[in-house]
Design a binder for these strands. Structure first.
Lengths: 315, 315
DNA sequence: GACAGGGCCGCTCAGATGAGCACACTGTCA
DNA sequence: TGACAGTGTGCTCATCTGAGCGGCCCTGTC
């Protein structure tokens, strides 16, 4: 008859004890003395209170960052950093701005004076570059050739130059297109001193930022500029995603395509050597490509929005 | 530049660590190993996370009991038990039923086979008695004379008898009115064997249940049955509350009135000797009387509803 | 380049804590 | 009455934890 933990007195006692422990920060010994219980009894009451839901602990951030999804992404894919921004995604330009700013904050936070930054070309990377505060003398390396879109934003060269100018570090840039008509031209371009010099920096790059495309119309800038034959060929090879020109199958395996021979940019092997590659994907349609990128092991960081994070996690 | 705790990476790291610690129950050492930090750093992150509101701990009960108010009442007045029922208070009969059931649960929970139960008369005490499960052979003692209301509920005798019958314990009852016309009659009644025998049990009573009245029209059954002169006399003496016929000033001091001489019931001194007296007040109008009762030190337990609890705490 | 100031970090050690064990009590059955 | 399973409680000891202290690095100044 003595004490039934589910009765009113038990509930109120548990709540009192829980309040003292969790909110007032008292030790269990103090609480035991105060209530005339043994410290073991206090421990059991507290366990029961958590078990029964009387004490609820929630981890929630008031700001823009969706910590729940961030942590889940980080844990699920063993990432170094994951930042999920809780922002409406109906307006793509605004969304890209939000992600760019979040990525800029992330980069500013994790970069050290010893880092060498690599930048691939993507619209989200441009957005990030615009929001980036001056970095501590960080050298910046261009990872991909120029994919010029009429009326589009800055080219990869412009972005790298801009970031390096602000940081005061060296800018390792090269003027070459991302794709060329044949492999021989690509080989010749790679021999050019400027290109070769930039590529020689690749092993030194410690942090890089890239976009993610899905191999489908409107989901990859690269997809949208290559020929129908190239599109079909990569489809046949099972390409699902491209990360700055590195093609991946749905399960994250790098796919070497003939098109790769005709591109001036970082390879899968080179990307693997970079300690942390941060990607900035957006749009729920890209969930499959993002999963491929995260599974590939090439990517160590992600900045995205809630809807895509959910799509990736629930798939 | 290294780690700014307010940046996205810092927030997500804090959230990860907090999740591991608070939700997964890992130790700080384990977490430190997992994240490559020192356990001190983990401790600081967790402190900062709580400080900043990233981790929120709330104590809340899903059921009828308002644990927040219960704990506050209990702490504020140093009570042994406080149970605040979160129930609408527009219908008095229904409210009394809720409080009666809660009080019955409380009593059933805290009573032991060694206890002797005293019952004063109040409508809420009747409601409690109706909801009370059989107690373990508990003797029951009547604390107050009979206040008969035409068409009212059971008298104090009926209530005591009913509870004792269910418990299988002795019923110490007496048939005498609560108030009589003069002090001499009261003294004579107290000499009667039946009354004297019941009163002789008073020092043995370990738990009692009573109502609380406020000395105002409609706020005290006693007020409503005594003469205008008595009402005025007690007003002049500064009486604010009556707890089963024990009169209290607003600051909780017992007030001895001439009327007390003409009553057959427990005195303030006798009540003080009872280890725990539980009161069951309701109606926000009684806030002042309840405060007086709780301050008096005569009362060790309270069962009430949220609105009155708030009124008492905020006054 | 030297140096003082300030903040951050990890170490030490005493105190707090939890897992596991032993014991007491209760109600049940033979 | 006595044996016994089940439950609740507190003890022991190894581990975990936090306050305080001192060292280290970074920064700004001369």
């Amino acid at each position: 008859m003595a004490d039934d933990r589910t009765g009113p007195a038990g509930i109120v006692l548990s709540a009192s004890v829980a309040r003292r422990f969790y909110l007032d920060g008292r030790s269990k010994v103090e609480i035991a003395d105060e209530f005339g219980l043994s410290r073991f009894k206090v421990a059991r009451l507290l366990d029961a209170a958590r078990e029964s839901g009387l004490v609820r602990i929630e981890i929630r951030h008031e700001g823009e960052i969706d910590v729940e999804s961030s942590v889940r992404l980080r844990d699920r894919y063993g990432l170094q950093h994951a930042v999920v921004v809780d922002t409406p995604d109906d307006d793509v330009a605004s969304l890209r701005g939000h992600l760019g700013r979040a990525a800029a904050q992330l980069l500013a936070e994790v970069i050290t004076p010893d880092d060498v930054l690599g930048l691939a070309w993507a619209r989200a990377v441009s957005a990030m570059a615009e929001a980036l505060p001056p970095l501590p003398g960080t050298p910046v390396v261009q990872l991909t050739g120029v994919l010029s879109l009429p009326g589009g934003p800055d080219t990869s060269v412009d972005v790298v130059r801009g970031v390096a100018r602000a940081s005061g570090g060296a800018a390792h840039v090269f003027y070459a297109p991302f794709t060329v008509p044949d492999a021989a031209t690509a080989r010749a371009l790679r021999q050019q001193p400027e290109v070769a010099s930039a590529f020689a920096q690749l092993p030194l790059v410690t942090k890089a930022v890239a976009g993610v495309g899905q191999w489908a119309p409107g989901q990859s800038t690269l997809y949208d500029v290559v020929s129908d034959e190239d599109r079909a060929a990569l489809h046949r090879l099972g390409v699902c995603a491209d990360v700055s020109g590195v093609f991946l199958s749905a399960d994250g395996e790098p796919v070497h395509a003939e098109l790769s021979e005709r591109m001036i940019g970082i390879s899968a092997d080179q990307m693997r050597e970079i300690p942390e590659v941060v990607v900035i994907p957006y749009g729920t349609a890209k969930a499959c490509a993002v999963r491929a990128a995260l599974r590939s092991g090439l990517v160590g960081g992600i900045v995205t929005h809630t809807a895509l994070a959910h799509a990736v996690l629930e798939g």
